[in-house]
């Protein structure tokens, strides 16, 4: 056994499929008891990374340990520690909710009775008691995802991989999944979460690793990533739309980048809070009345855009 200080430790991970490089040397660390959000657009390599860490595929170079165990040489030990819920790892559609959980309990070595008890408590916890006797193929998307999560928790893993757990879910189901994840984290489960939704990473992750084209392009907390791009955004709504151009002219004097005039709103990046005071003074001096004025930090979307040069 290696050191246990890091739940997951990844160094220089490379995976190629023919001419395509899915991972081009990824480093990342998930600290115990935290949620790491692996954020990136489709095809960035998120799922490939999770599949390697779940021992489903082997890397071409680099190495990864989970709980101190090597994912290639000690795959069996790694499998004892992890739970996997993903867009690909799935429940059996032709079995009922109960049967799916029973099967996994039995495979993990529980007695018939223990497996049954475990299935029952998980179904209750995930609000699936009414659907317990129905085939999983007939579940709604949200129910299915909850069953998926329940299935990955039968073995009470200390480390959970969630591969795009809310992709394709409606907002309500997404919130349910988020609540479940928060509950697990409160119980001390370490989570590696992949997502292409920035708000999901923002909501759940303690730390975010942004990857694109198989490379890590940024690491930090949501706040650090937002601060990284530096700029803040000021938006001004003139009291009268006739003043729109005049207001834009004043904003242009304090802006640190291009000014966007659209509808009845003037929006521009500014270097810092000092710009706001300056802008208020200028608007006042010019006798311009504003209906609304605000300064905000960039959204993670904007951060992502500036990091990758494309939308998530």
């Amino acid at each position: 056994m290696g050191d246990d200080t890091n739940a997951v430790h990844v160094e220089g991970l490379v995976k190629r499929y023919g001419d395509t490089t899915a991972l081009a040397g990824v480093d990342l660390t998930v600290r115990p008891g935290t949620v790491l959000g692996l954020l990136g657009p489709n095809g960035a390599g998120k799922t490939t990374a999770v599949r390697i860490l779940a021992t489903l595929i082997q890397p071409d170079a680099g190495h990864a340990t989970v709980g101190g165990f090597d994912v290639v040489r000690q795959a069996h030990e790694v499998r004892r520690l992890i739970g996997l819920t993903g867009q690909y790892a799935s429940v059996d559609e032709q079995l009922t909710g109960t049967e799916n959980l029973l099967m996994i309990g039995r495979l993990l070595g529980l007695s018939r009775r223990a497996a049954r008890d475990r299935a029952r408590s998980l179904l209750a916890r995930f609000d699936l008691v009414d659907a317990a006797g129905r085939a999983a193929g007939k579940y709604s998307g949200g129910m299915r995802r909850r069953l998926d999560l329940a299935a990955s928790l039968v073995g009470e893993p200390r480390l959970l991989y969630l591969d795009e757990p809310t992709t394709g879910l409606d907002p309500r189901s997404r919130n349910e999944v988020w609540d479940i994840v928060r509950g697990l984290v409160a119980d001390g489960v370490t989570v590696l979460l992949t997502t292409q939704y920035l708000d999901e990473a923002d909501q759940l992750a303690d730390e975010i690793v942004v990857i694109d084209h198989g490379r890590v392009i940024a690491t930090g907390t949501a706040e650090q990533l937002k601060a990284r791009t530096g700029a803040q955004t000021v938006s001004v709504r003139p009291g009268s739309s006739d003043d729109l151009e005049k207001v834009a002219a004043e904003v242009r004097r304090v802006a640190s980048g291009p000014v966007d005039v659209g509808g009845d709103l003037v929006v521009a990046p500014v270097a810092g809070p000092a710009a706001l005071t300056a802008l208020v003074r200028r608007l006042d001096d010019a006798g311009l009345v504003v209906a609304e004025l605000s300064l905000r930090r960039p959204s993670l979307d904007e951060v992502f855009l500036s990091l990758t040069g494309g939308p998530a």
């Binding site: 599949r51 779940a54 021992t55 489903l56 069996h76 030990e77 499998r79 004892r80 992890i82 739970g83 996997l84 993903g86 867009q87 690909y88 790892a89 799935s90 429940v91 059996d92 559609e93 996994i104 495979l107 993990l108 299935a151 990955s152 073995g155």
Partner: peptide, 13 residues
């Protein structure tokens, strides 16, 4: 294809 195998293979069996 359905991903059942991935789940099975992520278990210590």
């Amino acid at each position: 294809n359905k991903g059942v195998f991935d789940r099975l293979r992520s278990l210590p069996i």
